[in-house]
Computed example of a mutant assay.
Amino acid sequence: MKAFMGSGVGRTVILELDRGDDIVESVEKTLEKEGIKNAYIASAVGSIQHLEYHRPLTMDEATEDEFLSLDGPFETGGVTGTVIDGVAHLHFSGGGVQGIHVGHLEKGTRVLYLMELVVIELEGFALKRVLTPENVKKLFPVSEEPS
């Protein structure tokens, strides 16, 4: 286990995404424009017309993922995650006429009618994600490499 301590929270951004907007790209671009490198998703509600996500397939030491691409309609049960060093790591739950879906949200996921996200800036962190031998992008201090 690792724990990273920051200095607090900063600005709050409410994003209202429209039909066709890419959820992951919209979060990253807005935060980049505002100069926010680290944040978390406090709340997200809305609908999705096209879903791109992945989920693990095995319990092996190194992850093997299944990537899915589905057309909706889907209603989100929630989107949660972090943005570290400007890169979003978002997970979602949602469902529709095709059933329930849960996993890691990928770029290319597009809003159906509306998506509202509340994003909270995290201050005092100098972190990066690094791909580890388990094929997982884990957090490390900017000054440290994984062993």
Rank of each mutant, 00 (worst) to 15 (best):
K2S: 10
G6M: 05
G6Y: 02
S7E: 14
S7R: 11
G8N: 10
G8I: 12
G8T: 11
V9S: 08
G10S: 04
R11Q: 12
I14H: 03
L15M: 08
L15Y: 01
D18I: 05
D18F: 09
R19W: 01
R19I: 00
D21W: 05
D21H: 14
D22S: 02
V24I: 03
E28H: 00
E28S: 03
K29H: 04
E32R: 13
E32I: 02
K33L: 12
K33C: 06
E34C: 04
E34R: 08
I36K: 02
I36F: 03
A39S: 02
I41C: 09
S43N: 13
A44D: 06
S47P: 07
S47G: 11
L51T: 07
L51A: 09
E52I: 06
E52L: 09
Y53M: 10
Y53L: 12
P56C: 09
P56L: 07
L57S: 10
L57W: 06
T58E: 04
M59A: 14
D60H: 12
E61L: 14
T63E: 11
E64M: 10
E66L: 14
E66N: 11
F67L: 10
L68P: 02
L68D: 09
S69C: 06
D71K: 14
P73M: 04
E75T: 08
T76I: 01
T76N: 01
G78H: 05
T80N: 05
G81R: 00
V83D: 00
V83I: 02
V83L: 00
I84K: 01
D85N: 15
V87D: 02
S93F: 08
G95W: 01
Q98Y: 05
G99M: 10
I100D: 12
I100Q: 13
L105W: 03
E106P: 03
K107Q: 13
T109K: 07
Y113G: 08
E116C: 07
L117M: 05
V118P: 01
V118M: 14
V119R: 05
I120M: 14
E121T: 08
L122V: 08
E123K: 15
E123D: 12
E123N: 14
F125C: 11
L127Y: 05
R129L: 14
V130K: 11
L131E: 15
T132F: 08
E134W: 09
V136F: 12
K137C: 07
L139W: 12
F140W: 14
P141E: 15
E144Y: 08
E144A: 13
E145C: 06
P146G: 13
P146L: 13
P146V: 09
S147H: 13
